[in-house]
Nucleic acid binder design. Structure first.
Lengths: 240, 240
DNA sequence: TTTCTTTATATTGTCGACAATATATACCAA
DNA sequence: TTGGTATATATTGTCGACAATATAAAGAAA
C-alpha cells in the first residue's frame, strides 16, 4: 500500500516543481518503482536473489528494462550485485544500520540548519500544523501507530526539502530514506521513545521558526543521535 | 592522465580489502570508468550530448553495456538524462557547486570526527608523512602545483576512508569527489588560499592524533566552509 | 563414503534488430 | 517573410537470441 507522503516518486528537480511537463515514464522507470516498493514493503524479502528471468515474467517486461531497473536499485543500495552472479536484495547488518545513522546525523543536521534560513513562513506554519496533527494522533493511539507508520519520516522529509539544497534532498530522500524504510521492515523494531521524539520534533521546529540555524542543527543532530543510541541499546539487548 | 591516488577505481567493499578475488570486470563497468575518466578530464566537455551510437562506436561496444554505463554515470550525477531525449554531461551551476560544499561540510566533518576514533596509529603516521611531503612540495613550487593536482583531494580522501564508515566513504568518494574534480575542470579556478589550507590540514591531523573527534569535526567543517566562502567570493568577482 | 573432476543446466552479459518517440527538414498558407 | 503543419530522419527504448560465466548434477578415483 503506497502511503500518501511524497516519497513515492522521489524528488522532482529543482526547488519548486516546474510545470510538471514531459517527465515521460519509461518501462524501466516504472518497473524500478514497482520493485523498489516491493522491496521496501518486504514483498521481496531481504537477502533473496533477484532472478532476472523470473522478475521479467512477473512484471511482464523484457530483460532489457528490467536490468536497467536493477541497476537503479543498485545505485540506491537496495540491491547488491555481483558480476556474472546476480543481484540480491540488500541485508543490512547492524554495523551498516549504525553507519547510516551517522550519515543521517550529519546530513539532516545540515538540512535543519539550512531550513532555518530557507524555509518560508508558510512552510513553517504548515510544518507546525503537521506536527500538531501528529500530536493528537499520538494521544489517541497512545503513540503506537505514529512512528510505526511513515509519520516520523514525513516530519523529517519536510525539513530536508526545506533546506532547498538539491543535492542534500536527493541523497536523503532518494537513497537513505528508502533504506531506512527497508530496515524498519527487516528489524521490525518499535521505538520506545515516541513521546520524547515528539517533543524533540517540537523543539526543532521552534528553532527553525526562530531562524536559529545553529540551534536547529544541534537539536536535529541530538535527535538522530538519540535514535541511534536507542537502536544500539536494542541491538545489545537482542544479542544477549 | 590517471593520477596515482586511489580514486581511480572507486572504493572496494568493506573496511579492509579482502582477498581481491572475483571482482570480475564487465564491459559495462569498463566503459563506465573510461567515460567517467573522460568526463572528469574534460575530454568530453560539460554540457555536451552523449550520443549512444557515437560512443558505442568510439569504445567499440554495443549499445547494451553502453547504456548501462550511462546509467551508472547518471547515478553519480555526472550525466543527466531525459527520457526519450538522451543524456548530457552535467553542467554545474554556481548554486549546485555551493550545494555540494554544504554537503561536504556535513559529511567530511562527520568523517573527521569518526576518523579521530577509528584511524589506527599507523594510519595517522602515514597521514602525517603525506602531509609533510605536501609541505615540501609547496615550498618548492610556491604552492602553485599542489592544490592544482589531486594532492588536496588525496588528503581528504585519507580522512574519509579513515572514518571506516562504509556509507560515508561511498557517498564521498564515488559520487561527490568525481563531481568536484569535474568542477575543477569546468570552472578552472585556482585556490588563493594554499598556505592557509595547508595549515588547516595540519591542525586537523593534530586533532585526529589527539583523538579529539569533536575538535576534528569543527576544524574540518571550518576548513571546508572557508573553501566555500573563497569560491563564493570568486564567483562574485567573476560575475561583476 | 568422500573428494575431485567432468558434464549438464541455468543465469547473466552482450549483441543486433525493431518499435516508439523526438528532432530536423520541407512544404504550404497567410 | 512568417507561422504552422506534415513529412523525413535520427535517436532512444525495448525486445528476443546468442555467448560467456557460474552453479548444480553426475560420475570417477581414493
Amino acid at each position: 500500500m503506497e502511503s500518501s507522503n511524497a516519497f513515492s516518486n522521489g524528488i522532482r528537480r529543482g526547488h519548486q516543481n516546474p510545470p510538471d511537463t514531459d517527465d515521460a515514464i519509461t518501462i524501466a522507470e516504472s518497473v524500478f518503482r514497482q520493485i523498489r516498493q516491493a522491496i521496501v514493503e518486504g514483498s521481496i524479502p531481504t537477502g533473496s536473489k533477484i532472478s532476472e528471468p523470473e522478475l521479467a515474467k512477473t512484471y511482464g517486461v523484457s530483460r532489457g528494462p528490467l536490468r536497467e531497473a536493477i541497476g537503479r536499485l543498485e545505485a540506491c543500495s537496495l540491491v547488491v550485485r555481483k558480476p556474472n552472479v546476480g543481484a540480491r536484495v540488500m541485508t543490512m547488518s547492524s554495523e551498516q544500520l549504525i553507519d547510516i545513522y551517522y550519515v543521517r546525523e550529519a546530513l539532516e543536521g545540515m538540512a535543519a540548519r539550512l531550513a532555518a534560513t530557507q524555509m518560508s513562513d508558510a512552510e513553517i506554519d504548515k510544518l507546525r500544523e503537521l506536527l500538531s496533527m501528529h500530536g493528537s494522533e499520538i494521544e489517541q493511539e497512545h503513540g503506537q501507530a505514529y512512528f510505526q507508520k511513515e509519520g516520523d519520516l514525513d516530519f523529517h522529509y519536510r525539513i530536508i526539502t526545506g533546506s532547498k539544497n538539491e543535492r542534500l534532498i536527493n541523497l536523503l530522500c532518494n537513497d537513505l530514506y528508502y533504506q531506512m524504510r527497508l530496515y524498519r521492515y527487516q528489524f521490525g523494531m518499535r521505538s520506545r521513545r515516541v513521546p520524547r521524539a515528539y517533543n524533540e520534533h517540537e523543539y526543532i521546529v521552534d528553532a527553525i521558526a526562530n531562524r536559529d540555524g545553529e540551534m536547529a542543527e544541534l537539536l536535529m543532530r541530538s535527535h538522530i543521535r538519540s535514535s541511534r543510541k536507542n537502536i544500539e541499546q536494542m541491538l545489545k539487548e537482542r544479542s544477549t
